Amino acid sequence: MTFSIHAASAPVFINALTNMRAWLDKAAAAKPEGVLTEARLAPDMLPLTAQFQMASDSAKNAMARLAGIEAPAMPDTETSFAELRDRCDRTIAFVRSVDAAALTGAAEREVVLKFPNGTGYRFDGAAYLTEFALPNFFFHAVTAYAILRAAGVDLGKPDFLQHLGRPEAIAG
């Protein structure tokens, strides 16, 4: 069995976004929502809401670019945990909707990123996924996790990897 672009992307995004969604439940039980939604690690960094929005954008845009389709528009208007949970749900639903067959040939598909300042990057799909999309997605996921931890939310590594479930005993 070959390891596909779909296997390296969709489950990774779905698992991490599902975990991130669960972090909001712990956060809601720990601190006032209004304090946390605007929390940031440093004054020049974007707040928690933006980290969730950017993780969402990274996942949905990666899947769309790799499949050669349009990503759903999701304006960055979330201000509450309920809206961030919904954003996670909509992103997960979109990622799930991209059939593995749609990513046939994605490793070789050209992906061009153009930034507003006129610069950008040109990748083949495999390099785009491994060198830009996944690192960018996890930058925002880890930053969201770190913001919540720094604000006193009781999160740990098991929350980051909760998609794995509880470890099982392995003999010998």
Rank of each mutant, 00 (worst) to 15 (best):
G172T: 14
S56L: 07
L24G: 05
L46Q: 13
R21P: 04
P158W: 07
R166T: 14
G118K: 10
G156Y: 12
F13H: 08
E78K: 12
L48D: 01
G165I: 09
L161K: 02
T143K: 04
I69C: 10
K157A: 11
R96L: 09
E131L: 12
A55P: 06
N61W: 08
L17Y: 03
T18D: 08
R122W: 00
P135D: 09
P167H: 00
L113P: 02
A93D: 09
A82T: 15
T77A: 12
E38F: 00
L36V: 03
A100M: 06
A27C: 01
P116W: 03
K31N: 01
P11A: 13
L48R: 00
V112H: 09
G105M: 08
V142H: 07
V35L: 03
A169E: 10
T49L: 02
F139D: 05
L113R: 02
A16T: 14
A100V: 06
E33Y: 06
A71T: 09
T18F: 00
D89G: 00
L164K: 06
R90Y: 05
D159E: 15
A28K: 15
S58K: 05
E108H: 06
T2D: 14
K114I: 07
S9L: 06
A127Q: 12
G120L: 01
L66K: 09
L46I: 10
R40K: 15
A7F: 00
L48V: 02
A171F: 11
D159Y: 11
A169I: 11
L164H: 03
D159V: 13
G125L: 12
P43I: 00
P11W: 12
K114H: 11
A42S: 13
V153G: 01
R87M: 14
A28L: 14
P72N: 08
S58F: 11
V112M: 02
A62N: 06
I92V: 15
A141M: 09
N117S: 12
E33C: 09
A7G: 10
A55I: 07
